[in-house]
């Protein structure tokens, strides 16, 4: 991670000295994403970690060095959600995890194509802060049995044996367990369209790959947990210089 930061900073400073197509741009973007928690649950029978939809909004701020190269940072508010679902006899027990991150992706944008319609790929890294969480689910409640009349009915699921306890509450962070800073890589590809020589709209498929565990390293043989976030982003940027000159006119 340190190597990556140094390389990015050096490249950025070098490119900042260049002239030509150079100019700043700023904009807004928003999109939907699908987040998956990648972990090992081999010892959890009848348990699936399922991806969940989320959304994100951001403010891209960038600098265009050449027509083919730009660098941008996009302060982003992003939801990275996932679901733990029990199956088989345990069907009905689940926990949806709604996690909010404040994320700062920094990436290079390599573009190609015509004057107006261009394709591009993004590559970079991000740092994110796990701001808050919410958990919603149902668990079987051992001290709330269903059959206390000593009837001999075979339950068809655990919730027929123990009444379920349904909850929808704020997630309380555990300082011993939760790592709230997340670092990762970005890869994206999309198309952009520039009009009036000032505005650019773009549609991009983007992948955020967490490289750091969601948990602190607090035990031997810990099963790591990583966010894998796949999103579709629609955004628009404006060239600041053009806007200023419009105002001057």
């Amino acid at each position: 991670m340190r190597v990556m930061t140094i390389c990015c900073a050096a490249t950025f400073l070098m490119l900042c000295s260049l002239q030509g197509h150079s100019q700043f741009f700023v904009g807004a973007e928003g999109g939907l994403n699908m987040n998956y928690l990648t972990t090992s649950n081999a010892s959890e029978p009848f348990t699936n970690y399922v991806g969940m939809r989320g959304w994100n909004i951001g403010v891209p701020i960038g600098y265009q060095f050449f027509d083919w190269l730009a660098v941008e940072a996009t302060p982003t508010y992003i939801k990275k959600n996932y679901d733990i679902v029990r199956t088989g006899f345990l069907t009905g027990v689940y926990q949806k995890n709604y996690n909010t991150y404040l994320q700062l992706p920094v990436n290079f944008r390599f573009s190609f194509g015509g004057e107006a319609l261009r394709g591009f790929v993004d590559l970079g890294g991000y740092a994110a802060y796990w701001q808050s969480g919410r958990i919603k689910g149902t668990e079987a409640n051992i001290l709330n049995e269903v059959d206390t009349a000593y009837e001999t009915v075979n339950p068809t699921s655990i919730l027929g044996e123990n009444n379920g306890y349904s909850y929808n509450q704020k997630y309380t962070f555990d300082n011993a367990k939760d790592r709230r800073l997340e670092f990762g890589l970005i890869a994206g590809a999309g198309v952009s369209y520039e009009f009036l020589e000032t505005y650019t709209v773009y549609l991009e498929g983007r992948y955020y790959r967490a490289m750091t565990d969601q948990q602190k390293n607090y035990e031997t043989s810990q099963a790591p947990r990583y966010n894998d976030n796949f999103g579709l982003v629609l955004g628009c940027t404006v060239k600041i210089k053009q806007i200023i000159s419009l105002f001057k006119k």
């Binding site: 090992s40 649950n41 010892s43 959890e44 733990i84 926990q95 958990i135 689910g137 668990e139 409640n141 001290l143 709330n144 306890y165 909850y167 509450q169 555990d174 011993a176 367990k177 948990q215 607090y218 035990e219 810990q222 099963a223």
Partner: peptide, 11 residues
Amino acid sequence: GVNRLDYTPWA
């Protein structure tokens, strides 16, 4: 969960 501090909420 499989890790030591993986807990459900209090029911």
